[in-house]
Design a protein around this nucleic acid. Structure first.
Lengths: 335, 335
DNA sequence: CTGAAAGCGCTTACAG
DNA sequence: CTGAAAGCGCTTACAG
């Protein structure tokens, strides 16, 4: 591989001058610049990213810290990861995947080794242990999630409260007076999951305001359990025939159960839900829904992280991505 | 941040000696080693990975080059990515995500910038343009896929031919004489997809050997199309009541269609399929199946890549991961 | 067994 | 506008 020295020799200039055209931080006369560019092309030279990183103390890499919760649903994860990578590349950054089960340890490790310029934390919980090493070191980071106490760290998330309001309003506007609230497994709320909790709170409050009675239906983990729970609920004559769903596993399983019970939407059952776009893309989910907009979240996170790298002392920010209602006539008007 | 110089000063030794204990490549007396380790702990020192990379010409990072085909199904992608990251970490490597649409360009870029020590190419096609820059540069790489001409590059994949044989045998052993072969969209075969083609060839050959008549049912892209195609096929009295499926989208949609048509497995319909474990985990898929074993593939790929980095001149290898049949009584014996 | 020196490939003040 | 020099934080022959 050619080095900057080879290019300098080929072009008959010093290494500093080559560096100047490489970084673009100094003026170089068009003639010498042309000679240097010719040499670069001839030698197929490309900056050694490690050497540049050492000289500039910038790795041009962001770490994405993945976190799983077995109650959650993973098809959307790939969409997020690709979206982060794409958004980062557009700004000159690469993305490193951090998947170890102990996320706090992963954070400590990459910060200590200076492996990345900043971190994106997926799926942040209230009391998330990954925040400690970040706030202690003051390392640039963005949380995807909306914890009560972000510990002075930037955060971005879908506005789950607004999403809940949209869905509740959609039902109330159509004249519905009650609905099942198909929820995540209880342990997800207890784990400090911020999106589950925020959606729930807003939904309950808005429903109270709008005179919509919500009957909670918690759905346990696991396909068989999801199916059984939905089936039981849909067969219960005491429960409303309208569903407000915040649980991707339940959304994905619902059509199976509809088939089991010979129910049609919206004739027999009205449904609205909040789910990942990935689900909508893969299945015939003709429910009015709020999608979770992974690309918009990723783009915002990367933008905030770049800002943070540029301005380490700026005050922490929180950004909420506006959800949009995607109407698909799964709700009928009630008199 | 502390540097190796700080540690040396604190321990009262030279930087070389600190480096010796860091790399573990030289003997250091237990006493000095202890002093150095104490200094490291006290200063919370950690090797700067960029500096080490520059000195050793090893980034300890692998690049994973993702490729999408719209006819394919992505829920399994996240499983693969996490599996690669976990397998790499176990061997001291980090994983960088390479997602740009032009994969060949991504490969060229990271090779030229020396950003990674090796590359893992996902979803390799026959005639895949990403192979060219790799075979030209001789960069360490492993293909996930099994192209006709791997261009001297190591490759690993599930043994799709063996998977086809398992499934055909499973039907033939149960006395079935004919089956629908629910396939990927035609454009996937034409695109050079190696797994689709290898499964198809083996299935056809084995079926001929075993006296099983296979009626091909190509399934187009898109949830609505998948559903409509399956529904039409299952309603056609001329078609067999036995399904051999190699198409994740069709597997995922099948229960919806069974519901539509009031069909039960195995009473009305017998089914075997090859699909990703992720699908099986998320849905109630009680079909006898061969799973695609992402973890085993990832582990093998990382192992091969580490070997390649250690022995750049060794002859190229190809590894096929043995599939396993997971029986779930979706097939009834025929007399 | 330990240390002084050179080098990895860049960038960046600082002179000129 | 261009170049010589120092430095980023390590590792690795090579002496001693």
């Amino acid at each position: 591989m050619a080095t900057i020295g080879d290019v300098a020799r080929e072009a008959g200039v010093s290494r500093s001058t080559v560096s100047s055209v490489l970084t673009g931080r100094k003026f170089v006369t068009p003639e010498t610049r042309a000679r240097i560019e010719a040499a670069i092309a001839k030698l197929e030279y490309s900056v050694n990213s490690g050497a540049r990183a050492l000289a500039t103390s910038r790795t041009m890499t962001f770490g994405v810290v993945v976190r799983f919760h077995e109650a959650e649903f993973s098809p959307a994860l790939a969409t997020y990861l690709v979206a982060f990578s794409d958004a980062a590349r557009a700004r000159g950054y690469a993305v490193m995947l951090l998947t170890e089960p102990d996320g706090a340890e992963a954070v400590r490790r990459v910060i200590a080794a200076r492996q990345v310029d900043g971190l994106i934390l997926l799926n942040v919980l209230d009391g998330d242990p990954r925040l400690e090493p970040i706030s202690r070191s003051g390392y640039p980071a963005v949380l995807v999630g909306n914890p009560e106490d972000p510990r002075g760290i930037d955060a971005v998330d879908l506005d789950f409260a607004a999403a809940a309001n949209l869905l509740v309003d959609h039902l109330a506007d159509a004249g519905h007076r009650d609905a099942m609230f198909v929820r995540w497994p209880e342990e997800l709320y207890e784990s400090g999951s911020t999106y589950a909790t925020r959606f729930e709170r807003a939904a309950l409050r808005r429903a109270a305001d709008r005179g919509l009675r919500l009957v909670p239906v918690p759905v346990p983990v696991g396909p068989e359990q999801v199916r059984a729970t939905l089936r039981t609920a849909l067969q219960d004559p005491a429960l409303p025939r309208t569903l407000l769903i915040h649980n991707d596993a339940a959304v994905a399983m619902l059509p199976f159960v509809l088939g089991d019970l010979r129910l049609e939407v919206p004739a027999d059952l009205n449904v609205v839900s909040l789910h990942s776009a990935e689900l909508a893309r893969l299945y015939v989910l003709s429910f009015s829904a709020v999608e979770s907009r992974p690309e918009a979240v990723a783009e915002a996170a990367v933008e905030m992280l770049c800002d943070r790298v540029a301005h380490p002392q700026a005050p922490a920010r929180k950004r909420l991505i506006e959800p949009r209602l995607d109407q698909r006539s799964s709700v009928q008007a009630r008199p």
